[in-house]
Amino acid sequence: MLDGELDVAAVFGPFAGWVKTMKNEPVTIQPINLDDDTVPLEFELAVGVRQTDAFLKYLLDFALEDHAEDVEKILRDYGVPLVQCSRCVVAGDLPAHGSYIKLADQKFEARPDLASPDQVVTQEKLEAWLADGAIRSRS
């Protein structure tokens, strides 16, 4: 895209922000986190510790809270897009999507009325495919 061969590129927000801010490239960043209800397009940054390191976890939490302005400055200096968040150490100004619908929690039903005849799998078709040499999974 920067070479002019592409008009549009989809990249991870923090990387796009870094390219624009740190590399000083003339790009327009358009967040798309509100465009999909099933694919999460917002991600929390986290610091992970072992489950047995509760003391360290709280030390890190307190340090992040104590230095929230410094953390925000670093994130903004690097162009990281930040969404609105009431429980985050650093919140941004971009509208947040909120919770996503987990695909595993959605109820999917077969809709043969929406399928064309070649898309409907019948027992007869399955048997014919197997007779023609399709491989049956044994797992």
Rank of each mutant, 00 (worst) to 15 (best):
A96C: 13
N24D: 12
A134C: 07
R87I: 07
K125D: 01
K102L: 09
S116F: 00
K20L: 03
K73L: 15
D77F: 12
V27M: 04
I135A: 08
Y58E: 12
D66C: 00
V121F: 00
D61H: 09
G48D: 09
L2N: 11
I32P: 14
W18E: 01
P95D: 15
Q51A: 15
Y58N: 13
A104D: 11
K73E: 14
L64M: 15
V8R: 14
L82A: 08
L126V: 09
D36F: 00
D7K: 05
N24F: 01
E109F: 08
Y58T: 12
E124I: 07
G98N: 10
Y100L: 07
G48R: 05
D70P: 03
A96F: 01
E109C: 04
D70E: 15
D132W: 00
G17T: 12
V83L: 07
A115R: 08
I74K: 09
A131V: 02
V71Q: 08
V89D: 05
V89Q: 05
F62G: 04
V71F: 12
L2K: 05
L94C: 03
E5Q: 13
T122N: 02
F108L: 09
V47R: 04
L34C: 05
A68N: 10
E69H: 06
L45R: 00
E42I: 14
G133K: 02
L56V: 06
E69A: 15
D36L: 00
Y78F: 15
Y58L: 07
Y78I: 13
P81M: 03
A91H: 06
G79T: 07
L2E: 07
S116G: 10
D93E: 14
E109H: 05
S99C: 06
Q123P: 10
V27D: 01
V47N: 02
V11L: 10
V39F: 03
K57G: 01
M22I: 13
T28P: 00
F108E: 01
L59A: 04
D7W: 11
K57V: 01
T28V: 13
M1L: 10
F55R: 11
G79F: 10
N24T: 09
M1I: 04
K23L: 15
E127S: 09
D37I: 01
K102G: 14
P95T: 12
S99Y: 05
A134V: 04
P31T: 08
T52P: 02
E65R: 14
D35F: 03
E44A: 14
H97P: 03
Q106E: 13
A131Y: 01
D36E: 08
V47H: 00
Q84N: 08
E72R: 15
I135V: 14
L126T: 06
D113L: 00
R50S: 08
S137Q: 06
V71E: 09
F15W: 07
L41Q: 13
K20P: 11
A54S: 10
L82F: 13
R87L: 06
F43A: 09
I101V: 10
D105G: 03
R138L: 13
D70F: 00
G133F: 02
L82P: 00
T28F: 06
A63H: 15
K107C: 06
N24L: 02
G133Q: 04
D77N: 15
S86L: 02
V49G: 03
G79K: 00
